Simulated assay, not measured.
Amino acid sequence: MTDKTFKLNTGQDIPALGLGTWQSEAGQVQKAVAHALKSGYKLIDGAYCYGNEDEVGAGLAEAFASGIKREDIFVVSKVWATYNTRVELGLDKSLKSLGLDYVDLFLVHWPLLMNPEGNHDKFPKLPNGERDIIHSHSHIDTWKQMEALLSTGKTKAIGVSNYSKRYLEQLLPHAKVIPAVNQIENHPALPQQEIVNLCREKGIHIMAYSPLGSTGGPLFTAEPVVKIAEKHGVKPAAVLLSYHIPRGSTVLAKSVTPERIDENKKLIDLDAEDIKLLDDYSNKLTQEGKLQRFVYPPFGVDFGFPDKS
Score class of each variant (00 low, 15 high):
residue 5 T to G: 14
residue 6 F to L: 11
residue 8 L to G: 08
residue 9 N to L: 01
residue 11 G to M: 08
residue 16 A to Q: 05
residue 17 L to I: 11
residue 17 L to P: 03
residue 18 G to W: 02
residue 19 L to H: 12
residue 20 G to D: 01
residue 25 E to K: 12
residue 29 V to A: 09
residue 30 Q to D: 11
residue 32 A to C: 13
residue 35 H to G: 03
residue 37 L to Y: 07
residue 39 S to D: 04
residue 40 G to M: 00
residue 48 Y to T: 11
residue 55 E to R: 07
residue 55 E to G: 05
residue 55 E to L: 08
residue 61 A to T: 08
residue 68 I to C: 06
residue 68 I to N: 05
residue 68 I to L: 13
residue 69 K to I: 00
residue 71 E to V: 07
residue 78 K to C: 03
residue 94 S to W: 05
residue 102 Y to H: 02
residue 103 V to G: 05
residue 109 H to C: 08
residue 109 H to K: 11
residue 110 W to F: 14
residue 111 P to W: 04
residue 122 K to M: 14
residue 122 K to N: 13
residue 133 I to D: 09
residue 135 H to Y: 14
residue 144 K to D: 00
residue 147 E to D: 02
residue 150 L to S: 00
residue 150 L to H: 00
residue 156 K to M: 00
residue 156 K to N: 01
residue 157 A to L: 14
residue 157 A to Q: 14
residue 157 A to D: 13
residue 158 I to M: 06
residue 158 I to N: 07
residue 163 Y to F: 15
residue 164 S to R: 08
residue 174 H to T: 07
residue 179 P to H: 12
residue 179 P to W: 12
residue 181 V to P: 04
residue 182 N to G: 02
residue 182 N to K: 01
residue 185 E to K: 02
residue 186 N to H: 09
residue 193 Q to E: 00
residue 196 V to D: 15
residue 197 N to E: 09
residue 200 R to I: 00
residue 206 I to R: 07
residue 208 A to K: 04
residue 211 P to D: 03
residue 213 G to M: 02
residue 216 G to E: 09
residue 231 K to E: 05
residue 236 P to D: 07
residue 239 V to S: 15
residue 240 L to G: 08
residue 242 S to E: 08
residue 246 P to T: 01
residue 247 R to K: 15
residue 252 L to A: 01
residue 255 S to W: 14
residue 255 S to A: 10
residue 263 E to H: 10
residue 270 L to G: 11
residue 270 L to Y: 04
residue 273 E to N: 13
residue 277 L to E: 12
residue 278 L to D: 15
residue 280 D to M: 01
residue 284 K to S: 15
residue 284 K to G: 09
residue 286 T to Q: 04
residue 287 Q to Y: 09
residue 288 E to Y: 04
residue 289 G to F: 06
residue 294 F to I: 09
residue 297 P to H: 13
residue 306 P to G: 03
residue 309 S to E: 13
